[in-house]
């Protein structure tokens, strides 16, 4: 069941398009913002609210990178693996995240604290290597800087 709040937010988006169905990606983001990810049940509820089939909505969920169809940790790290960050040594960060923080690309730690996902160029190539945590951008990263950031998270 969608909450009243979720329904209201979805309706705000639906009003921005010619057809309700166009709000599919936005509606999935709404649910995800409240629940962290989009379960099968939530997907079906959103489909009903927009008047589309769950299969149609699933085809969106699998096309868009920022829709999570599996639970994620309390903090989601999007690590840029595109070219400028590669040149500037992002692979060192991947290795460090695995050895020191116990999280590999595409995985969530057992304590559900961190999820690490590879990301396309974050548009911060002048501050490479770069990553985002919970929507906040960090650049010019070194392993020391990364440790300080992660230690500051709950």
């Amino acid at each position: 069941m969608l909450t009243e709040q979720e329904r209201a937010e979805i309706e705000v988006h639906a009003a921005c398009y010619l057809h309700r169905r166009a709000a599919g990606p936005e509606a999935l983001k709404v649910v995800q913002a409240h629940r962290g990810w989009v379960s099968d049940e939530a997907l079906a509820d959103v489909a009903e609210a927009l008047g589309v089939t769950a299969t149609e909505l699933e085809s969106l969920a699998t096309a868009y990178t920022m829709i999570f169809r599996r639970p994620v940790g309390r903090h989601v790290i999007l690590l840029c693996d595109s070219v400028s960050c590669w040149v500037m040594g992002y692979e060192r960060l991947v290795e460090h995240l695995r050895s020191r923080w116990g999280v590999a690309l595409g995985e969530t730690t057992a304590d559900e604290r961190l999820t690490l996902l590879p990301a396309a160029c974050l548009g911060a190539c002048d501050r490479a290597p770069a990553l985002m945590i919970d929507g906040v951008l960090y650049g010019d990263l070194t392993v020391e800087k990364l440790d300080r950031i992660l230690e500051g998270l709950k």
Partner: peptide, 11 residues
């Protein structure tokens, strides 16, 4: 949408 690797101008 600016996702072309290396590009950070529209930001």
């Amino acid at each position: 949408d600016e996702m072309e690797p290396g590009t950070f101008k529209d930001r």
